[in-house]
Amino acid sequence: MNILLTGASKGLGLKTTQFLLKKGLTIYAISRSKTENLNELLLQYPDNLKWLHYDLADGVNVRQSIFKDWIGFDTPIHGFVNNAALAYDDLITNLNLVSLEKMYHVNVFTPLTLTKFVLRQMLLHNIKGSIIHISSISVHTGYKGLSMYASTKGALEAFSKNTAREWGEKGIRSNCLVAGFMETEMSSTLSDNQKNRIYQRTSMKQPVDVDSVAETIGFLLSDEAKSITGQNIHVDNGTI
């Protein structure tokens, strides 16, 4: 199985890449940087891990650079994990349009364009594929300063549900994994006090385990999840 995954260089993307490689899947991984950890994985899995340097701020060259020149139209894609994201956090009263637009390009516009070509590739090869967008608990529970970020993830949740409806009859599934706060670089700008307050709002009073999120992604990609589509699967330590 060939899986396209964005944001593979660190955090959840790196963990998921590692987990899926262990399961024997082939990963087409995209990221802006090649971290040491990613490099180690590339050396460990020279055949099953393919890496492309690409910045999702660029939505124009998706077809040419990613699908035509790199993956190739002859390669079937069985799954897409839309994981890369920018977190621009601030109060709404400080909204900076340039930062907001950049975040929308990375978190929404380019992932939607990637989905376009993933779907095309699935159609071409008659693949009953699985698409997973990584969403955030901030869509469902408000956090001060995260309104703009949450709005990009909310857009993905709406897009995913409609993707499921549009392509379900071809056997293509689309789900969102709604992750709670994890101890990754994404939340590194938060102070310990802020983090603790966030964790106190969960049933389990602790950060979400990254491995648990990666495992759930693996499940949603697999055939075992073949009847699950159009859903938001919360892996958030019970943020209720």
Partner: peptide
């Protein structure tokens, strides 16, 4: 409409 989408993709290939 879905057949036409498939048609587009196959002709493009």
């Amino acid at each position: 409409s879905l057949d036409l989408a498939e048609l587009t993709v196959r002709i493009e290939a």
